[in-house]
Simulated scan of single mutants.
Amino acid sequence: MKKIRILVLGLLAASGWGAVASEKTPEASHGIEYPSGWQNWSTIAVSHRTDNNTLRVILGNEIAVKAARSGKVNPWPEGSILGKVVWKDTELENWKTAIAPGDFVHAEFMFKDSNKYSKTYGWGWARWVGLEQEPFKNGAQVCTSCHTPVKERDWVFTDPAPFPALN
């Protein structure tokens, strides 16, 4: 079962999904502008949360992906942007042992800028909810509270997935 989950999550990460339903740029979240083009960023990792039955793909901008591939992530370099795209998990109709993305939940981002976000541990935190990408209304304190257990890891839960080296 674990191998099937890994396979499904890997296929999900490699596929071209993720288009947001609207063409309009969403409003800022916590004073942070929506990161246009994130749907084309590279995958850093995938995860399946069993406590709330969600699938997550963790993406990064070019700076973050380079850091993830080289193992230089504690601390993450300035200018890194990490994106987490979240769906409720669902069972595939024709492959009952496979887990796949169901309803879209949200896209959330961490923006590394130690000067600009010095009050929130060097990270700007933003979230857009639903396919409409409505800005999350609660404060960034919610994010830092949840991420406190990984403050020694530069406030990041994600372990970058190993990728084969390309020639």
Score class of each variant (00 low, 15 high):
Met1Glu: 12
Ala14Glu: 14
Gly18Leu: 08
Val20Asp: 04
Ser22Phe: 01
Glu23Met: 05
Ala28Asp: 10
Ser29Phe: 11
Pro35Gly: 10
Trp41Ile: 01
Ala45Pro: 01
Val46Ile: 13
Ser47Asp: 14
Thr50Cys: 05
Asn53Ser: 08
Leu55Trp: 03
Ile58Ser: 09
Asn61Ile: 01
Glu62Cys: 04
Glu62Ser: 12
Ala64Cys: 08
Lys66Ser: 13
Lys66Arg: 15
Ala67Met: 04
Ala68Glu: 01
Arg69Glu: 11
Ser70Lys: 15
Gly71Val: 07
Gly71Arg: 08
Asn74Gly: 08
Trp76His: 03
Ser80Ala: 04
Val86Arg: 02
Trp87Cys: 02
Lys88Thr: 14
Asp89Arg: 08
Thr90Asp: 14
Leu92His: 14
Lys96Pro: 10
Thr97Trp: 09
Pro101Arg: 01
Gly102Asn: 14
Val105Phe: 08
Glu108Arg: 01
Asp113Ser: 01
Ser114Gly: 06
Ser114Pro: 05
Asn115Ile: 15
Tyr117Ala: 02
Ser118Lys: 13
Thr120Tyr: 00
Thr120Ile: 01
Gly122Leu: 13
Gly124Arg: 00
Trp128Phe: 10
Trp128His: 02
Leu131Pro: 05
Leu131Gly: 05
Leu131His: 06
Pro135Gly: 04
Ala140Phe: 05
Val142Trp: 09
Cys146Gln: 08
Thr158Ala: 11
Asp159His: 10
Pro162Met: 05
Pro164Leu: 11
Ala165Asp: 07
Leu166Val: 14
Leu166His: 12
Asn167Lys: 12
